[in-house]
Amino acid sequence: MQQVCDLFGLEIERTQTLLLAQLAQTEAKSHLLRNTLLTSISHDYRTPLANLMGAASVIHDQAAKLSTEKVSDLAQTVLEEAQHLNRMTTNTLQLARLDASPLNVKKDWESLQEILGSVLSKARKRYQTRHILVEVPNNLPLIRCDAILLVQLFDNLIENAAKYSPEETAIEIKAVVLNDELVVRVMDEGPGISNAWKDKVFHAFERVHAEEAQADASEDNQLRRGMGVGLAVCMAIAKVHDAKLWVEDRLPHGAVMCLSLPVGIQPDLISES
């Protein structure tokens, strides 16, 4: 009897310790997330907000003294900055959501060709002057995924490629089936990512050119701001799909973002003759 009680007591103690450890871990994680979000606000939101406020206040205070074209230009700035903030907010919230409840993802049978098609129609409108080359075969296997999350992932990879490569160079997107994996590559002809940064780019608020960008507020660097959470969200989205996401070098120069999605057993399909 005594032994049973002892064992029982030990078991309770063990469970309690485990629970406490879990609690501490959850708390540490939520603390980290809170810090990440705060950094996001101070780091990445202030610039677009300042631009937006600047342009809007000029329109508001000085409209009478400005030409119609000038007002139109300023309104364009307001729109662009608002769109930029919208994308960042979507990414930041998604990161928080995936961090808090990674299992709460609604997966369905999806066609990667369709997902990429929807991403590309937006990308072509957004980067009208960029050359975007696409190679996606018909009849790819279906994958179990959350289409909205994958759209967000590819949006971010293309945005990243567009930001970190010269305007006149092409962005290439290729999808292939390799064994039981579906691999999508987003390639640019930018400076590429050094080995020291290949893992770090997927962590929130690490930026390849962060130090240079701070020292140099040139227009080129201005264009590159705000990828603080973009690739981190991509990684979080890849994880909830048991997919792998990594970066490779492109020769002679450039970065290749690779996403490898597992292809499971295909669903039953009725065929028609």
């Binding site: 369905d108 049978w109 999806e110 060709q113 018909n138 279906l142 669903p267 039953d268 399909l269 009725i270």
Partner: peptide, 10 residues
């Protein structure tokens, strides 16, 4: 059966 849709839309 969402897969039917994906197949036939394709």
């Amino acid at each position: 059966q969402t897969q039917y849709l994906r197949l036939y839309m394709g």
